[in-house]
């Protein structure tokens, strides 16, 4: 690696820290960038510099936006009274891709995990309680992962919101679209059977 100039070597090392990239794939990616310097590398560098300057965590919901308040929180049409609680920004983006939800979000920033010293105050749970009190929320939708940690967090939030009188719902669990029963685990089949609906 001594033949590679220091700047490029540093770029490879930084790229190798990204998820899905190791040193070899980072080297390949950097080579592609170097070959397409004008068409790809310069605009990419410019876009990254711009995002590094402008991207901020929304002070209201925890989403990533271009200012202190993200576009969803700033949009008055999203003030439907429904608040969807998600674990991470990636989950928020997944919900938005579907386009089915028209309300606002609250990003917790993780799940409760006592063994990892992640408690309610580490997450954005106090801020969630404040928002429910301040924003006239009528329904809190718990869109947390169907994992032990995700559901432990969901039950905790349901407990602390219990006195607020707000409706608390959660996403359904069961057979995914395109799923075949033969391939489902017994837990999913059990959950789907419990949540069956009149057909």
């Amino acid at each position: 690696m001594t033949d590679i100039p220091g700047d490029i070597e540093q770029l490879i090392e930084l790229m190798a820290r990204l998820p899905g990239l190791g040193p070899r794939s980072a080297r390949r990616a950097v080579l592609v960038l170097l070959k397409k310097r004008g068409a790809l590398m310069a605009p990419l560098a410019q876009a990254m510099a711009q995002v590094a300057l402008s991207a901020r965590d929304c002070t209201t919901c925890g989403n990533i936006g271009a200012g202190d308040t993200c576009a969803i929180c700033a949009d008055p049409r999203r003030a439907t009274g429904e608040l969807c609680v998600v674990e991470d920004v990636a989950d928020l983006w997944a919900m938005e891709r579907g386009g089915a939800f028209k309300g606002r979000y609250h990003v917790l920033g993780g799940t409760l995990s006592p063994l990892d010293a992640v408690g309610p105050d580490t997450l954005r749970i106090p801020r969630l309680l404040a928002r429910v009190a301040e924003e006239g929320i009528s329904e809190v939708i718990l869109a947390l992962n169907a994992t032990v940690d995700g559901q432990t967090t969901a039950h905790y939030i349901a407990d602390v919101l219990g006195a607020s009188g707000v409706a608390i719902t959660s996403l359904a669990q069961g057979v995914p679209i395109g799923g075949e029963l033969d391939y489902l685990d017994d837990g999913t089949i059990g959950a789907a059977l419990k949540a069956r609906k009149r057909f």
Binding site: V148, Q151, A158, Q173, D185, D186, G187, T188, G190, A191
Partner: peptide, 9 residues
Amino acid sequence: SRAGVLGDR
């Protein structure tokens, strides 16, 4: 799986 407990606080 013990996923049956997920819905029971």
